[in-house]
């Protein structure tokens, strides 16, 4: 083969200017909607709290005597460490994100497996069933749970009718309600990447493993899991990261003891009007969520450099 289809479509881009133009659009997007807002939030986190609108002092001050003066403080970051409240909120968020990811994984894996091995004529319908909830607003779907979990809601009614409980369970405004809501809302984000990975998985590899003496569990551990691992990672990231910063679900379904970063952030901004403090929380949260991804990218880059091959090729073309 002289040129692959990919090469052919890329040919006009061999000129550097063509490539630069193509990259300009996503780059502009990233600057306007990611870099700039992050820079603004970061600058606010370094400013002083004040009673004004906006409620913080400018970090660049023009002084007739001294000229341009930078007025920054790290006190809001220091306060994050001093007050255990923030650490608790952080641990609450991470714990909730971890449990949600794990529960989603346990539910989504069999689901995705069933979809990937189902007869072809069923697959489109099953896939549609997973995506269908997205047709309705996220907020409405979470709000619906307040009704379902209410003291006189259908879940309690059913349990009472079955005689399993004597009085309605206090389901609403609890961590359990938050957990249910989170798993419900984020399950599709786990199912879809897992399905994509399992769909590509060649079933004859499991037969080969069995033929070579692997029990079904060993075959799963040594063949299926390593090959669908990218899907597991992708799904976990898609669930873990947004759940860490989730605000709507803990706000609507959670109670007084539900301590999560997203809610803390919202309260600092809107209830306390402590913009610099809230900005400091936001920056820390961003770092926390982005750090593993950045470390991994850096590691792959270093490894790629050492082996003298692009990082993507080194992973084996999957």
């Amino acid at each position: 083969m002289a040129t692959s289809p990919a090469e052919r479509t890329l040919r006009p881009l061999r000129s550097r200017r063509g490539l630069a133009w193509l990259l300009a659009a996503p780059l502009a997007w990233l600057v306007v909607f990611l870099a700039l807002p992050v820079a603004i939030v970061f600058s606010i986190s370094l400013a002083q709290q004040t009673l004004a609108m906006p409620p913080y002092t400018p970090i660049l001050v023009w002084d007739a005597v001294e000229g341009l003066r930078v007025d920054v403080t790290l006190e809001h970051y220091a306060f994050l460490i001093e007050d255990p409240f923030y650490l608790e909120a952080l641990l609450g968020s991470l714990g909730m994100a971890a449990s949600t990811t794990l529960i989603c994984l346990l539910i989504a894996f069999p689901m995705a497996h069933a979809m990937a091995t189902a007869p072809a004529r069923w697959r489109a319908a099953m896939l549609l069933a997973v995506i269908l909830p997205f047709w309705t607003s996220f907020l409405l779907r979470v709000y619906a749970w307040t009704g379902l979990l209410a003291g006189r809601g259908p879940i309690n009614q059913m349990l009472l009718a079955l005689g399993l409980i004597d009085s309605p369970l206090p389901l609403m405004n609890s961590n359990l309600a938050v957990q249910i809501g989170l798993v419900y809302a984020y399950l599709p984000f786990m199912v879809l990447p897992l399905y994509a990975a399992l769909d590509r998985f060649d079933g004859s590899l499991l037969e080969a493993a069995a033929d070579l003496g692997a029990t079904p569990w060993t075959a799963f551990r040594t063949v299926t899991l390593p090959l669908v691992w990218p899907g597991v990672l992708a799904g976990s990231a898609l669930v873990f990261i947004p759940v860490t910063g989730e605000f709507v679900i803990p706000d609507l379904l959670g109670g007084a003891d539900t301590l999560m970063l997203g809610k803390v952030l919202w309260e600092e901004f809107f209830a306390n009007r402590a913009w610099p403090q809230a900005a400091a929380v936001a920056v820390c949260m961003l770092l926390l969520v982005a750090l593993p991804g950045l470390l991994r990218a850096a590691w792959e880059f270093v490894r790629g450099q050492r082996q003298g091959v692009p990082a993507v090729a080194a992973r084996g073309g999957h």
Binding site: D202, S204, L205, E207, A208, A209, V223, P226, L227, G316, H318
Partner: peptide, 9 residues
Amino acid sequence: FQQYALFPH
């Protein structure tokens, strides 16, 4: 196996 079914990883 006919298509060999080698473990790609």
